[in-house]
Simulated scan of single mutants.
Amino acid sequence: MGTAEPSPAQLPPRRLGLTGSIGAGKSTVAALLRARGLTVLDADEQARLVTEEPAVLAQLEAAFPGTVATGKLDRAALAAQVFGEASRLAQLNAIVHPRVRQRIQALEAQAAQSGARWVVHDVPLLFEGGLDQGMDAVLVVDAPLEQRLKRVVARSGLSREDILARDARQLPAAQKRERATVVLDNSGDLPALERQLETALRQLGIHPAGQSLG
């Protein structure tokens, strides 16, 4: 006797990677996708939650003295110790990333149980971390450099030099565009971005309510 084919609800969800250079508008697109009923797994949010766990905080304080105070992570102090230091950053990633992956896998399993056909993985360093290899499609949000700089300065207070330094440590925007399944140009207004997103979802076969059309 043959094995029964799994029902659509039993199939693992397909993965849509979402990424973009600093200031491109990735968070805006993530919010638009959530509003359309898709499950969006935010890697940065999960990393923040991981670094609130007491066991992780203990490891971080041991590896990076002076970065934990009164049971909370001093993110600025940690950034000062690892920024631009490849070996220190690798040490940090070795502590945090495995736990982030576990949380993401658990959330993806929950989405599958609820019948989601697609799950969005919102990952700033999707290409840099090689995570695009595990995606069924990749959506890249982009905008001109000067426009991105203005946005980040306005919301963060960082200097142009700081933002440019961070941007330089990411894969160049042009290369992200080349490797994308679909590119959203966020140089215009929100309605223009929404129109592009609707077209992208249709192109990928994703129903606005989060269910595959295919």
Rank of each mutant, 00 (worst) to 15 (best):
H121M: 08
H121T: 02
D122E: 13
D122Y: 00
D122N: 04
V123S: 04
V123Q: 04
V123A: 08
V123R: 05
L125R: 06
L125G: 04
F127T: 03
F127L: 08
F127S: 11
F127E: 12
E128Y: 07
E128M: 07
G129S: 15
G129P: 00
G129C: 11
G130C: 05
L131R: 15
D132H: 11
D132Q: 15
Q133M: 08
G134D: 09
G134E: 03
G134Y: 02
D136T: 11
D136W: 02
D136Q: 13
D136S: 11
A137I: 01
V138R: 02
L139F: 06
L139A: 06
L139N: 09
L139V: 11
V140N: 01
V141A: 00
V141W: 04
D142E: 15
D142C: 10
A143V: 06
P144D: 13
P144T: 10
L145Q: 12
L145A: 15
L145T: 14
L145P: 03
E146Q: 13
R148K: 11
R148D: 02
R148W: 05
L149T: 12
L149K: 10
K150F: 03
K150V: 14
K150I: 07
R151E: 01
R151Y: 01
V152G: 10
V152R: 08
V152K: 03
V153G: 09
V153W: 03
A154P: 12
S156R: 04
S156W: 02
S156M: 09
S156N: 14
G157I: 08
G157P: 07
L158S: 09
L158V: 12
L158R: 11
S159Q: 08
S159P: 06
R160E: 14
E161I: 07
E161D: 14
D162Q: 15
D162P: 04
D162G: 11
I163E: 05
L164P: 01
A165Q: 12
R166M: 13
A168R: 14
A168W: 03
R169L: 15
R169A: 15
R169F: 05
L171V: 15
L171M: 15
P172T: 13
A173C: 07
A173R: 05
A173M: 11
A174R: 11
Q175G: 07
Q175P: 05
K176R: 15
K176I: 00
R177G: 02
R177F: 06
R177D: 13
R177V: 14
R179L: 09
R179T: 06
A180N: 00
T181M: 00
V182K: 02
V182D: 06
V182E: 10
V183Y: 01
V183D: 03
V183T: 11
L184R: 05
L184H: 05
D185N: 10
D185H: 08
N186V: 07
S187V: 07
